[in-house]
Simulated assay, not measured.
Amino acid sequence: MNKDKWTKGEIEENTVYGLFKKTVSSYPKQSALIDSSQTFTYEQLESIVCEIAASLPQQKQRFGIILDHGYRQIASMLAVLKNASAYVPAEPFLPDRRIQYMFSESKVRYVLTQKKYRKRIEKMGFLPILIDELSFRLKIDDTLLTTENYALPLDLAYILYTSGSTGKPKGVMVTNSNICHYIRAFRHEFHPGLNDRMLQYSVCSFDIFTEEVFTTLCSGACLVIAPESIKDDIEELMKFVKKHQITEIDSFPYLFLKMNDLPEIPDCIRLLISGGDVIRESYIDKLVNDKDHPMIYNTYGPSETTVCASYFHIRPHTALSDGTYPIGHSVLDTQIELVNKDGQLCQIGEPGEILIYGDGVSAGYSGNRPKESLAFFMDHLNRKGYRSGDLG
């Protein structure tokens, strides 16, 4: 996707705020977000987004976000996107040194935050914008549905930093178009609807967070934010899931291993999505063999390709001989190829490096990283690709 001019319809379909605004217009009274038993409709959430956006000093900037999980955090991200800017998320529990590195490399000046983190952010040399000092009157009027979306599809949406296990953390630059591609892929496979409720469980520095939040709020479903106090207690978490009738859970396989050990799980759950690590048959043997089990998926995809590049629908007796599951088929508008050490396409049964092509391939890395950036390329068919370094 490389254009100089965009139609109004293309901007609406290929920017996150454009899709969210379209959802607000279609379902203004629908529940959009539940936080600490407080429910916000789509039009109420949009009102908060507009108030935060109005407080931002500039457009086309990169804003840091250090906020506790809750409606303010979600609304702040949407406000930054409405502003045609990009956000760099950081969990408050991260060391100051890491946060300072991430924000400095990505050229952050302002940080959306709350009063209790103000001094810490100022000490790091950044300017705080205190979201918890805004009034959030939730006033609904006709101006909501005509508020401007300043973003374009190729504008950056966020910069997500990797763990840095092989050196300094790398900031993956993801565009609005990349995220909207993934929203379409998610809809195509999982069909989220007005009756769906997605658990917001992941930290904001994992791309699972993107899958939880934006596929939900751009599809008319409801995002339910789990309190930090119950995240490590599987029984309390399942009580929360049952109370709020959550239908979709997206997480690392270890959460599903804990669920597998329970006598039963809430019957409201229709979809479990595992990603970020290998899932083994022993982790979910009871879940997958229960005749009333939810749909369970294994997914694969580095952050450089915007969440998932492939899906595998797990059913009984579909594990491989080593007890793990395949990574499945490529998601909508994505192609996956395996190549050998000579760069030639592998034959069936031959191992090779996984190459990923499609609209999910991100804009590359933040900062000056010429060596790492060689993983991104254009092939002879003019497809944007990413060399994963993984074998398939």
Rank of each mutant, 00 (worst) to 15 (best):
D68P: 07
I65P: 01
E235P: 02
F93L: 08
Y87W: 06
G167L: 11
I159T: 12
G385N: 07
V278F: 07
I129C: 02
N195Y: 05
Q38K: 15
G352V: 01
D333G: 10
F377G: 09
K286F: 06
S321I: 09
A90C: 15
I225V: 15
P28M: 09
E350T: 13
S219F: 03
S85D: 08
S330V: 10
F312R: 07
P89Y: 00
G392P: 09
Y300G: 03
Q245I: 08
G220A: 10
G392S: 11
I34Q: 09
G275E: 02
L237R: 00
Y283N: 12
G385M: 04
C268P: 00
V224P: 01
P253G: 08
K384R: 15
S303V: 11
R197Q: 09
E105K: 06
R109L: 08
D250A: 12
S366Q: 14
R72W: 05
P266C: 08
D285Y: 09
L33G: 05
V174K: 02
A90W: 01
I66L: 13
E13H: 14
I327A: 10
S26Y: 09
E12R: 14
E211F: 04
L255H: 01
E337W: 01
T162F: 04
Q44I: 03
L78C: 13
G360L: 07
G360F: 04
G276F: 02
T41K: 12
K258S: 12
I74H: 01
A309L: 06
L56M: 14
V203H: 11
Y365C: 02
R387N: 10
E46W: 05
N2Q: 14
G364C: 10
G360C: 07
Q245W: 08
A53P: 03
L271E: 08
N83I: 07
F136M: 13
I230W: 01
G349H: 06
T147E: 11
Y110R: 09
M173K: 00
F252Y: 12
H317V: 13
T305V: 14
A185M: 11
M378R: 07
D359G: 11
H329S: 14
L160Y: 00
R315D: 03
F256N: 00
E228V: 14
I296A: 03
I230G: 05
K258Y: 01
Y325N: 06
I66T: 05
G323V: 06
V224K: 05
F40S: 13
P128R: 01
E281T: 13
Y365H: 01
K82T: 03
N298R: 02
R109Y: 05
I66P: 02
C50G: 08
F256Y: 05
T15N: 09
I74E: 08
G301R: 02
S303F: 02
Y161H: 15
A185F: 03
P192E: 09
G125P: 08
F256M: 03
L152D: 08
T113K: 04
K384L: 05
E353K: 00
E211N: 10
G389H: 05
L381W: 06
D207T: 04
R187E: 13
E228L: 15
V361D: 00
R120C: 06
M295F: 06
K116N: 13
V49A: 07
F209L: 07
P326E: 10
F93G: 10
R369K: 10
N340L: 08
R72A: 12
V339Y: 03
